[in-house]
């Protein structure tokens, strides 16, 4: 059973639809206590980093507890940014901090037509030598759908980087069973469904 964490940051309709299509059993927990015994946790999200403040101490402890117990965790978009220590978007609101680094705003370059937010389909480029369970079967250069203005740094946890203009950021991260994707797999056609399937496999 997968827990889909709803912290009121926009709509979960697309993620629900994708999980349902893939045959996953999932629910939206009413309280952090309901995370006990789940096989996987997904923290989705579109919107502002500050909305993660809804995930209070109780939620943070429960999610960290699941991570320590070896339960797979997937953060999507703002949910991935929340895995880092924090974000420039909301400096007073700490991230979960299971990954080192801080998220920063994409600068863009209006004169060169490089716009922010970064909206649209862009390529996943795995760093040399990276191996990833999340991206198994996904061809290097495969494109996925992004919509965001802030992004996480390319660190040792990065399993796919993406470049917008001249800026390169982490599109997918993986550390043990902690996974994050800056893009929206639920809106990324077959490639996105493959990535969600890979996460569900790890949860088995």
């Amino acid at each position: 059973m997968i827990a889909l964490v709803d912290y009121k940051a926009g709509n979960l309709t697309s993620v629900r639809k994708a999980l349902g299509t893939l045959g996953a059993a999932f629910f939206t927990p009413e309280s952090s206590a309901e995370l006990e015994g789940v096989d996987g946790v997904i923290v989705p999200g579109v919107g502002h980093f500050s909305s993660t403040a809804h995930l209070d101490a109780g939620w943070r402890q429960a999610i960290e507890g699941r991570v320590l117990a070896g339960v797979p965790l997937l953060g999507i978009c703002v949910g991935m940014q929340w895995l880092f220590e924090g974000s420039e978007e909301s400096p007073d609101c700490p991230g979960l901090g299971v990954l080192p680094g801080h998220c920063t705003r994409l600068a863009g370059n209006q004169a060169a037509g490089v716009k922010v937010p970064h909206v649209g389909w862009n390529a996943l480029v795995p760093p040399a030598g990276a191996s990833s369970r999340l991206l198994a079967g996904v061809a290097p250069g495969a494109q996925v759908y992004f919509t965001h203005s802030y992004a996480g740094p390319v660190t040792n946890d990065c399993v796919a980087a993406t470049t917008h203009g001249t800026e390169t950021f982490s599109a997918a991260v993986e550390r043990g069973k902690v996974f994050g994707v800056q893009f929206h797999p639920e809106k990324s056609s077959d490639v996105g469904l493959r990535i969600l399937t890979n996460f569900l496999e790890v949860c088995r």
């Binding site: 490089v114 970064h118 649209g120 389909w121 862009n122 390529a123 494109q143 470049t163 917008h164």
Partner: peptide
Amino acid sequence: MLSKRVIA
């Protein structure tokens, strides 16, 4: 590089 989108 960000792709140009074709929208229906």
